[in-house]
Design a protein around this nucleic acid. Structure first.
Length: 491
DNA sequence: AGCACCACTTAGGAGGCAAAAT
DNA sequence: ATTTTGCCTCCTAAGTGGTGCT
């Protein structure tokens, strides 16, 4: 498409956003989230979903309910149609709703992530997780005691809670057989947990979105013993590990320790807490890039804890090789610069002995390859230059003449080149580490949903990192409520 | 207790786009 | 000039957990 074509499409898109993308909430203009009805198509479930490929019907205005202020103007339905229902319920936050035919579930139109409503509930979520901080000591000592309880139901509850707390497992509601067979903590089955003496437990199951959870963990003697008991015959494959427990029982129990406490709060709490602890490894006087690496590492620890995975890109290993190659190139270039420096001032050999060691790790093959490429480049440049010269009526040069015509390097210039290359090598090495550590881990989900954004904001202030380096535009918008903290904020 | 129903948060992948690399 | 990469937005599925009824 031409620039103009794109411009037209962009404008049309913007006009739709302007028209449908806003709502009035208590007189304030608020951005609406996804306001589009899902188009018909084949249902694409994740993992082995029994309904994969079934037809998802087109949704007509007649099956859409509009939730709007009593005196507000009702947006007109598409020509020739009527809305299913108009309601005025101010106890819920959705603006429109319909029922989808494949799984019989509801779909909603809500305000956008950056809206005041979503911001408020985000704030409440993290405040609740912080509230847990005050109770966690007591909760832990209680479930540690209850691991030995005479009553099997209590023991199971304590053991499940131990996993939820230590491993950040999801609650694990029961599911029907009309959806993919995935589990969380309370719905773990016999075959999902294997024991390895003396105290190792191996988890292997499909969790939310059919993402595999595989983890080998050392547990306390009592927990090991409990699992042994819960797996004792006649229990067999296919049976529930915690047959006396479900999420309702667990959550009812948690309410007693803290009002509003449920299993999912532990994930938020442990994610944010872990992040805050990991961030302490940031080095005060390091470069911005090093600080960002520390930030991403802390983020990554949380993502690993929460098992946020992503598919490895198909050319991941190629990418790594390319970066390694670049590092080698920079190192070789730096070595060449150091040689020139030594030629210019042989006394440097004693003053800066490190200059003599720069060729380490650079193979002859690499050098040969590099020099060949360099020669190609020079020849190409020479050809271009000579074209120009001809056009200007000047004499053409040979390769040797071009080399000679270069300015003689001064020590100052060489030192600058040297320093720049050192900087570049460092940056490339950081990139390499970051990239490799990141190949199967998705950082986004924990950043968006689990890590209290105030921790990040405070970190930025404390270490003098611009907030744009860690929050993109939409995150800054989503976390508007959080950036007002000062550098001393503690989760 | 078990359910149906409902409303909300959490999740990974697809695809678009612009900057970087070639 | 063209291709690759990396970030971001969009999409919608898949969880959690509440309420009210039997």
């Amino acid at each position: 498409m031409t620039k103009e074509d794109k411009e037209v499409i962009k404008k049309e898109k913007q006009a739709i956003e302007d028209k449908y993308g806003w709502a009035l909430l208590d007189g304030r203009k608020e951005k609406v989230g996804n306001f589009r009805i899902e188009p018909p198509g084949l249902f694409r479930g994740r993992g082995e979903h029994p309904k994969t490929g079934t037809l998802k019907h087109r949704v007509y205005p007649e099956s859409v309910t509009i939730n709007i202020g009593e005196n507000a103007t009702i947006p007109p339905p598409p020509e020739g149609h009527k809305w299913g229902k108009i309601i005025h319920d101010n106890t819920v936050t959705w603006l429109a709703m319909w029922k989808e035919n494949v799984n019989d579930s509801f779909k909603y139109v809500w305000l956008a992530a950056g809206s005041s409503l979503k911001g408020q509930s985000d704030f409440k979520k993290f405040e609740k997780a912080r509230e847990l901080k005050k109770h966690i000591g007591h909760i832990r000592s209680e479930y540690t005691l209850e691991l030995k309880d005479k009553l099997m139901a209590t023991r199971q509850r304590a053991t499940a809670l131990y996993f939820i707390d230590k491993l950040a497992l999801r609650a694990g509601n029961e599911k029907g057989d009309d959806v993919a067979d995935t589990v969380g903590c309370c719905s773990l089955r016999y075959e999902h947990v294997t024991l390895e003496p003396p105290n190792r437990v191996i988890f292997d199951f499909l969790g939310k979105d059919s993402i595999r959870y595989y983890n080998e963990v050392e547990v306390s003697k009592q927990v090991y013993k409990n699992i042994e008991i819960f797996k004792r015959p006649p229990k067999k494959e296919g049976d529930m590990l915690f047959d006396r427990l479900n999420t309702t029982i667990l959550n009812k129990y948690l309410q007693k320790s803290m009002k509003g406490l449920t299993a999912k709060v532990f994930r938020t709490y442990n994610a944010s807490y872990t992040f805050q602890e990991e961030l302490k490894k940031t080095v005060k006087n390091s470069t911005i890039n090093e600080k960002l690496l520390a930030y991403n590492r802390a983020n990554r620890q949380v993502a690993i804890l929460c098992n946020h995975q992503r598919a490895v890109s198909k050319n991941h290993s190629d990418q790594l090789k390319r970066i390694q190659d670049k590092i080698l190139t920079s190192k070789y270039q730096r070595y060449l610069v150091s040689k020139e420096m030594l030629e210019l001032d042989p006394a440097l050999k004693k003053k800066k002995p490190e200059l003599g060691r720069l060729s380490r790790g650079i193979t002859k093959d690499f050098i040969k390859n590099y020099e060949e490429k360099e020669l190609e480049k020079k020849k190409a440049k020479l050809e271009r230059d000579n074209e120009k010269r001809k056009a200007e009526g000047k004499e053409t040069l040979t390769l040797e003449e071009m080399e000679k015509s270069k300015r003689q390097p001064t020590m100052e210039r060489l030192q600058k080149q040297y320093d720049n290359l050192t900087k570049r090598i460092k940056a490339q090495q950081l990139l390499l580490i970051d990239k490799d550590e990141n190949k199967t881990t998705a950082l986004g989900t924990s950043k968006i949903n689990y890590i209290d954004p105030r921790i990040s904001a405070a970190w930025c202030y404390k270490y003098n990192v611009p907030i744009e380096k860690i929050f993109n535009k939409s995150l800054r918008n989503k976390f508007k409520w959080a950036v007002e903290v000062d550098e001393n904020f503690v989760f």
